[in-house]
């Protein structure tokens, strides 16, 4: 009997602080023989006595010994997770949801557009593409954050920026006097990449309004709507489409999403409070 609601206990092996309200922890997946997932999928994480939250997997799919999540502490459960230390147990179930279309992008140019903590669910896709970089065309990454202090994975970003086969631009909504990079919204960066628009796959993750603007900009640059993918957020509670909470029109974000082609969600995004 498989029970999709049954959690398993996994121990934290490493905690990293990313920004003032965001942290990353690695869970030890070795005792269960590794944790396999596809980039874009999420897990339900359980904090003892407080409840579960859906958190995307942000680690490397080729390194199944550790299961990595980057979490922003915004509510009681995520704040309880924030208080955990190395060695503490976390309840986990998953992986759930649809993946990024990494395989569909073979031989094509790829543009990754991330906003805020939206970089976390995209990182496994970036790892996956970098692991077999030669089978893709251009790999462009546009990342927008609120301020320079809110930039996730800054050391890794510098490493990617240093690669000759990656075009990466980072922008912030509000700079500070020391900030030497771009200021302005992430959509403003998109025109700067030299993409073969008709043969480009776009992967977008961030606040819904940012994705709407970015998707429109990509379409105006000539990227086909069917090749623009977005990761949607709704109130995922069960992960398997049976609790009803995460419905977005006719679809359950937890099992039919979170990653959707723009063609599927565009009509739904324009309806308020759907």
């Amino acid at each position: 009997m498989t029970d999709a609601l049954l959690l398993e206990s996994m121990a934290i092996v490493r905690v990293r602080r990313e920004t003032s309200d965001t942290f990353t922890f690695d869970l030890d997946a070795r005792p269960r023989g590794g944790f396999r997932f596809a980039p874009g999928q999420f897990n339900m994480l359980y904090a003892f006595g407080l409840g579960e939250v859906p958190i995307s997997i942000s680690g490397d799919p080729l390194k199944p010994a550790v299961l990595t999540h980057t979490i922003r502490a915004v509510g009681p459960t995520t704040r309880a997770l924030e208080a955990l230390k190395k060695g503490d147990p976390v309840g986990v179930r998953g992986p759930f949801g649809t993946p990024w279309p990494v395989d569909q992008a073979l031989g094509k140019d790829v543009i990754v557009v991330a906003g805020g903590i939206g970089l976390a669910p995209l990182r496994p896709a970036i790892y996956s593409m970098l692991s077999r970089r030669q089978v893709f065309g251009k790999l462009c990454i546009a990342y927008g954050a609120r301020t320079p202090a809110d930039i996730l994975y800054d050391k890794e970003i510098e490493k990617w920026r240093g690669r000759i086969d990656v075009d990466l631009e980072v922008t912030v909504d509000r700079g500070d006097p020391d900030w030497r990079g771009h200021t302005g919204v992430v959509t403003g960066l998109l025109r700067r990449f030299e993409l073969d628009a008709e043969r480009t796959v776009a992967m977008l993750c961030g606040p819904e309004v940012m994705m709407r603007f970015a998707a429109r900009e990509l379409e105006s640059l000539g990227v086909p709507a069917a090749c623009i993918y977005l990761s949607m957020e709704r109130n995922m509670k069960c992960g398997v489409g049976s609790c009803g909470h995460c419905q977005l029109g006719p679809s359950f974000v937890c099992k039919d999403g979170p990653v959707y082609p723009l063609t599927k969600v565009e009509p739904l995004m324009s309806v308020r409070e759907l």
Binding site: L5, L6, L7, E8, Y46, G87, P89, V90
Partner: peptide, 16 residues
């Protein structure tokens, strides 16, 4: 009730 959750050693035990 779906589960009881117990702390056993350093782990969580989920008892359906």
């Amino acid at each position: 009730r779906l589960y009881r959750v117990e702390r056993v050693g350093g782990a969580l035990r989920f008892v359906p």
